[in-house]
Amino acid sequence: MAIAQLFHWVQETGWATFIRESGLTYPVIMSLHLSSIAMFGGMILMTNLRLLGLAMTDTPAEEVIRQLRPWKAAGLAIMVTCGFLLAASKADTYYPNPWFRIKMALLGLTILHAISFRKTVYRSSEPMRSRGRARLAAGISLILWLGILSMGRWIAYYEAPKAPMADAGLQARPR
């Protein structure tokens, strides 16, 4: 299949091979991925808690959204870049991994979510005008991101049906 070949081609590029084979690069990129989850995740959480009316109620929701926007964008950019590099270095095993596919689908849904609530919540001058809608946007966002986080962890636990024996014994604990 064409997509499988594309994944294989990515894995065989010089930089993807370097990440896979160098001892330090892979965990450093993974740490950066997790660090941006810590920073970016905290911002998503606080934005959504504000929309739910559970935190920072002394600041208008539109201010919270507006001021965190550039930071969330930067965090997302670092997170996605690191995630792409990690996946690319092991693209052949990621391709058939169902958890990886679900994660990508959920990431696609976050784009749909952002578009759906853009006018009424995230770019609105009065995001709390409809409390129900603000809560719905926040709830869906939290569920999507928790799902993405969980799928990311589960990727490491998938064993392909015909995993080579040599690979299986390499690590005691999935990374």
Binding site: A38, G42, L45, T59, L146, L149, R153
Partner: peptide, 26 residues
């Protein structure tokens, strides 16, 4: 990991504020 993001993420928001960045309306 989720609890890590909650704890470090909220601390980082205060850190950014101390640096004059992020949620500066508060």
């Amino acid at each position: 990991i989720a609890a890590m993001a909650f704890s470090i993420g909220t601390i980082a928001l205060v850190d950014l504020r101390l640096l004059g960045l992020g949620l500066t309306k508060q």
